[in-house]
């Protein structure tokens, strides 16, 4: 056993990267759930984003355009969910599960010609001056741009939800859609917009895997990341800044257990792997503040 082999700076730097896809998918789902919609199809939207992003990036040679394509693909799939649940009033839990099935199938079909191809390179940014700060520099300021974009999206979402009128409306819709409707807010329109945002973010998260993390297209490559995103939204108590904490905890446990193994520590891997989920449950129980939005998962129908 040699714990000194674990370099804390590198550990935190790779933690930032490991957490990025689930931060992206998680922040999108967080907004969706704050608007009162439970979309369990995150995995489906992520994988579609992964394939769309990869296809666009390969054909245009630009990873940036790839991310754009991924966001569009994810948003379109989310809107399909939106039409079903908001306009045709289908059950959200069942529709979300079906969405995952649909997304996995569609992405596999679309990606058939793209197996074994390498995508364009997406270079790291070494931010001048900031990147040269000891310790903090390598962790915070020498990453690829999507790491910063993900953090900016979280920051923006936090500000939007808490500091803007539109954010207030969105939360009102999520807390009590009937009351919001009475006040004259367009419940369905707000929710569709939230869903599109959620889908776009999930798509970005998926594309982060296919364009940066792996970077290649293979079927089923998200391997359950969408479900982890769902978990961290809950862990976060629907608060953006706590989402970061959750993502680093989940990402951190994976990186940590691999680090401990490599350092020769005999650890029961399965038990360590289940620990973030148990932690989420404990957090749910302890933090009464982690109350779900009032209308979460309920069907809205304006009867008059």
């Amino acid at each position: 056993m040699d714990l000194s082999a674990i370099n804390p700076i590198l550990f935190f730097a790779s933690l930032m990267v490991a957490a990025t896809p689930i931060i992206l998918a998680g922040i999108g789902e967080l907004v969706v759930e704050r608007a009162g919609v439970l979309n369990l199809g995150v995995e489906g939207m992520m994988i579609l984003g992964a394939v769309c992003g990869f296809i666009v990036a390969v054909n245009t040679g630009s990873a940036w355009l790839g991310f754009l394509g991924a966001a569009l693909g994810g948003a379109l799939l989310a809107l399909l969910f939106g039409v079903l649940t908001q306009c045709l009033l289908s059950n959200q839990v069942a529709t979300g599960l079906a969405l995952t099935l649909f997304g996995l199938g569609l992405s596999a079909l679309m990606g058939q010609g793209y197996i074994g191809i390498k995508g364009p390179v997406f270079a790291d940014w070494h931010i001048p001056i900031l990147g040269d700060i000891p310790v903090l520099g390598p962790i915070m300021f020498q990453q690829d741009p999507m790491v910063y974009i993900a953090l900016l999206i979280v920051l923006g979402t936090g500000l939007f939800l808490n500091r803007t009128r539109a954010g207030l409306i969105l939360r009102a819709v999520g807390e009590n859609h009937d009351a919001a409707h009475q006040l004259g807010y367009k419940v369905i329109r707000v929710r569709l917009m939230a869903l599109a945002f959620g889908g776009a973010c999930a798509g970005l998260g998926g594309a982060y895997l296919s364009l940066v993390r792996v970077p290649q297209w293979t079927e089923g490559m998200t391997a359950g990341a969408g479900w982890i995103a769902l978990a961290i939204v809950v862990f976060a108590g629907w608060k953006p800044w706590r989402l970061l904490l959750g993502a680093y905890l989940f990402g951190g446990v994976t990186v940590l257990q691999l680090n401990l193994q490599a350092a020769g520590v005999a650890i029961p891997v399965e038990y360590l792997s289940m620990s973030p989920y148990l932690a989420t449950i404990v957090v749910l129980v302890i933090m009464s503040a982690g109350r779900a939005p009032g209308s979460l998962g309920r069907i809205f129908h304006a009867s008059h």
């Binding site: 079903l84 045709l88 289908s90 969405l99 569609l106 596999a108 129908h301």
Partner: peptide, 26 residues
Amino acid sequence: LPGAAIQLLQGMLLFFLLAVDVLTNY
């Protein structure tokens, strides 16, 4: 047929079943 096409078809079937259910109650 690729397995993915079958998965897609299942997803589609579920969507349609969930979507047209609206006619029962509305």
